[in-house]
Design a protein around this nucleic acid. Structure first.
Lengths: 351, 351
DNA sequence: CGTCAGCCGGAGAGCGCTCTCCCCCACATT
DNA sequence: AATGTGGGGGAGAGCGCTCTCCGGCTGACG
């Protein structure tokens, strides 16, 4: 028994190997694989056979080195200053079904395209500079950003670095950066008209955090939708997007307006909290008070009664983000764009 | 205005640039940065200053090319044959808080270490070969696998390719692959003793899918824990880990054993379904029937009453996976290992 | 029949880094 | 004083790929 290469794994085949098998030059194989120029069809065929035969897989690193393209787009979950990566807050957000849907949408576009999608949590100055460094250095071709905090400096940083980036949801400050978002007016219209149509006359809102664009926009547009139907004022309490906040908000709303018969909550978990409070106060849902949530999350289905809720096409939005970032990467200097999606109302039993 | 480099971004500094600024050779700078050998402390200092001054960031691709290390570990969500990537099933799993916790745990170890964590959904033969190809080619240093299906061929494939890999949960078939898991016996002991201690005498189980290790082990170990307390037989119905399945299982259990006063469900959503059925049947939880769930997911908190549940230290387990894979990568040929974690009982109001 | 454009394949440079090899010099040893 | 020893630095090869440049061949046209 010869001791040749006793523990060396059989080195992966390179372009050179394929070239040798096919009896052509490295350059030709490269051309075939990236089909970048006309190559004689017969040779083309031979080369592919050689690729099959050798089990060749292009080496990403080598390719990146020369093309200055990493072939990866980071999905970044970004907080402002206050938090660090160990904060359970992150797990909470990552565990949110919403995040999973985003991920699914992004991967459905990027994985088939052979693009890697590294995930990063960014919650400190250090992490932020490292991210931008990676981007400038070309370790990353672009970023998809889920920015959770209105004062998050990351979006601005990214625009300043002139680096491909797309946000989920409009930025808190008006800066020139691409994003996808949902038509909050449509959502509000859907919700208000549904509530009105089923006979609600005293309607209140449980708002999300008002310093976040989503929280702010949902309340403002709901009020204006109600105004268009003749309701000059809609009482609202902020619930901070948490179930407990929803419960507190509902309690307060009930205290101030005991005759409430319709509630629009800016997300499902707050709606769920509201339902609990409503039931505990002896009211039936939807008979005495109708409740509409937002997100169509698993909470909506798990709730009793299951929640009527506004559904964002999150997967589609995320997929569009992926397409947008690829566009930006391919055409440097392209204009920043925004794509707005239409929500739908999923009618279940709570309203 | 000179038109020198009108649109060329100022090329990122390379090792060479730093070397020039520091007045040393490329090799020395490399040594300092990776501190791989003794370097004169004074020079060391000079070099770091030069790094600061130039804003140098090492080029990952170039480094990978020579070290044959990608600096990235994929997190793979793997299904068996039956599904494709567009299947909403994936979104559902990704949206599961459990997944987010895994992600959080993994990132808490790998991000600080500068390791990228690309996410991949693998649900087809093509995707599987591509993954193994990436691994062999060195685009990926290792994989962390969440295998969802008992017949999933991926774990076996990975061991055959002799590639660094760690599973969450023991493999369905006995193959030599590293994994982390939970001590199901402890979980069962905790649950059974809690139920018994609060006076339950007719106890049933709602099992998960029995072809999955988690589903199987939870039921088997629960029965043996009950047996140790003198209960020879525990009626059980499979609920497939879904809320609806939990409802159906509870309905059937109730029909066959109307005197049930304690239920152990293999996850929270089934427990939540069970609670709904129990309440609809006029029984009070926990007064008439106590219910224990598993996972300590958001469903446990959202449920009314909030669920007493078995909590796995998922973040810790995921972090350990990350450490294990790094160990495997650094010491090729290391033995496959398993690490088993102890669960705890989170007592809320349902039992 | 000569010239030239156009097409297609090969040669080879070089992307930014690591790492082996070599050399120089300071200091210890004989 | 000659030789040994080892720490610390530089030179340079080369990782696997893309892409520019070049050359040979073919066919069209004068």
């Amino acid at each position: 028994m010869a001791n040749e290469a006793p523990h060396t794994p059989p080195r992966a085949p390179t372009l050179e190997d394929v070239a040798q098998v096919a009896g052509v030059s490295r350059a030709t194989v490269s051309r075939v694989i990236n089909n970048t120029r006309n190559v004689d069809p017969a040779l083309h065929e031979t080369v592919w056979q050689a690729v099959e035969a050798t089990g060749y897989v292009p080496n990403r690193a080598a390719r990146s080195l020369v093309t200055r393209r990493a072939g990866s787009v980071a999905l970044v979950v970004s907080e402002g200053e206050s938090r660090n990566e160990d904060d359970p807050f992150y797990s909470r957000f990552l565990g949110d079904p919403f995040f999973g849907r985003v991920l699914g949408g992004v991967l459905s576009v990027l994985n088939p395209a052979g693009v890697h999608v590294p995930l990063t949590l960014v919650g400190s100055e250090t992490a932020r500079t490292k991210l931008v460094g990676d981007l400038r250095q070309g370790q990353l071709d672009g970023v998809l950003v889920l920015s959770l905090h209105p004062q998050d400096p990351l979006p601005r940083l990214l625009t300043e670095a002139r680096v491909p980036a797309v946000l989920f949801g409009r930025p808190a400050e008006p800066i020139p950066i691409s994003y996808v978002d949902i038509a909050q007016q449509t959502a509000s219209k859907l919700a208000s008209e549904h509530l009105l149509a089923r006979g609600c006359r005293t309607i209140a809102a449980i708002a999300g955090s008002l310093d976040m664009p989503a929280g702010h926009d949902r309340l403002v547009s709901f009020r204006s939708a109600m105004a268009q139907n003749g309701y000059a004022y809609v009482p609202a309490v902020e619930g901070g997007f948490t179930q407990e906040g929803g419960e507190r908000a509902m309690t307060r709303l009930l205290a101030e307006h005991p005759d409430i018969d319709g509630v629009y909550a800016a997300n499902d978990v707050m709606a769920q909290g509201a339902v609990h409070v409503l039931r505990d106060s002896g009211r039936r849902v939807p008979d005495d008070v109708a409740v509409i949530g937002f997100d169509d999350s698993s909470a909506a289905v798990a709730s009793r009664p299951p929640l009527t809720t506004v559904r964002q096409p999150v997967e589609d939005m995320a997929a569009e983000m992926a397409r947008m970032i690829m566009g930006q990467i391919d055409h440097a200097g392209a204009r920043t764009t925004s794509v707005i999606f239409e929500p739908t109302l999923v009618v279940r039993r709570s309203a």
